[in-house]
Design a protein around this nucleic acid. Structure first.
Lengths: 152, 152
DNA sequence: ATAGATAAGTCAACATGACTGACGTAAAAT
DNA sequence: ATTTTACGTCAGTCATGTTGACTTATCTAT
C-alpha cells in the first residue's frame, strides 16, 4: 500500500512549483484553484465553483473577491438567470493562468513521456475510480457534458 | 490535460474520509501525516519527518507535541545518537493509525479492483515520475532502502 | 401578485496549519 | 575546545478554512 505515500509525494511536488509562482503575485493555492477552474470552464457560476471546491462561500468570497478586485477575474450577470455572476478570466487572468497551467503541464508531460501511453491510461483510470462517483461525469466529455456546461 | 483536475478531485476525496475521522479526535490533516509516517516508519527521527513533510520544525512541533502529550506517539532517545528522539506510535496511536489507514486502503483497493493490475502499474509509474527524483528512492524498496531506514 | 426559494454577497468571530526570526540545551563531530 | 547538529520553544504573522446571522436581487410556484 505504497499508494498513499506515492500520492502524498506526487501531490506535494505537483503543487510546489505553482505555489512559488503564485507567491510572486501575493496569491496562494486557493487562488490557484479558482483561477484554474474559471480558466478551464469560462462562464462558470459561483455556486458551481463552490460545489467543486467544497468550501464555504465565505472562504471562496475572500479569494474570489481579491481576484476580481485585482483584475484577474471578471463577473458578468447571467443572461438567463440574472442572479448568477458568470466568471471569466481577464487578460491578466489568462496570462497568469497560462503560466500556472504550463508549469503543471510540463511536469505531467514529462511524467507521461517517461511512463508511456499505457501507463497514462492506467493512471487516469485509477484516479477516476478513486474519486467520488458524482464528479466522474465531468471527465467523460465525449459521452456526457459536465453539469456546469448545461445549467440544470 | 485533464490530469490536473483528475488529481484535484481524487486527492480531495482521498483525504476527505480521513479528515472526518480525525475531526472526532480533534485532529487535522497535519496530525494525519505525522501519524502516517511514524506508523509506516517506526523509529523515524524528527529531522527525517521534517524533510519528508517539508514544513518548519515549529509547525511540526505543534502537532507532534500534541500527539505526544495526548498519548498517540512516544519518543525515545536514539541509542547511537542520543540527541535524536525516535518516534513510535503508542497503542492508542496504532489504533487511530489503523482506522485511518483502513479507510484510505479501502478506497485504493476499490479503485485498483475497478481498474485492473495493469492500470495500477501505470498509476504508480506516472506518480513516481511526477515527484521530484530525490524522493523516488524511498519506493524502490527491493533495490534501495529509503534513507530513513538506515540513518546516514 | 405575492410568498418562498435560490444565487450571491457581507459582517463577525474563530481554528488550523503554515511561516519567520530569535534563542536555548544537549550531544556529537571536528 | 569549538563548532555543528538535533531538537525544542517563544512570539508574532499570514493564508485558508470554519460557523452563524443577515441582506439584496431575482427567479419560481401558488
Amino acid at each position: 500500500m505504497q499508494a498513499i505515500e506515492l500520492l502524498f509525494f506526487a501531490y506535494r511536488d505537483f503543487t510546489g512549483e505553482p505555489d512559488e509562482l503564485l507567491a510572486e503575485y501575493g496569491f496562494g493555492r486557493a487562488h490557484h484553484r479558482v483561477i484554474h477552474f474559471v480558466g478551464r470552464h469560462p462562464g462558470i457560476t459561483v455556486s458551481e465553483l463552490l460545489s467543486i471546491l467544497q468550501i464555504t462561500k465565505q472562504s471562496l468570497s475572500r479569494v474570489l473577491g481579491q481576484l476580481v478586485r485585482e483584475g484577474f477575474i471578471k463577473q458578468t450577470p447571467g443572461a438567463i438567470d440574472r442572479r448568477q455572476r458568470l466568471l471569466e478570466l481577464t487578460e491578466n487572468g489568462l496570462e497568469l493562468d497560462g503560466k500556472l497551467f504550463n508549469v503543471q503541464r510540463q511536469r505531467i508531460i514529462r511524467a507521461y513521456k517517461e511512463s508511456g501511453a499505457e501507463a497514462v491510461a492506467g493512471f487516469r483510470s485509477v484516479l477516476m475510480n478513486m474519486m467520488e462517483e458524482d464528479d466522474r461525469p465531468r471527465f467523460n466529455r465525449k459521452h456526457k457534458k459536465p453539469s456546469f456546461d448545461r445549467p440544470s
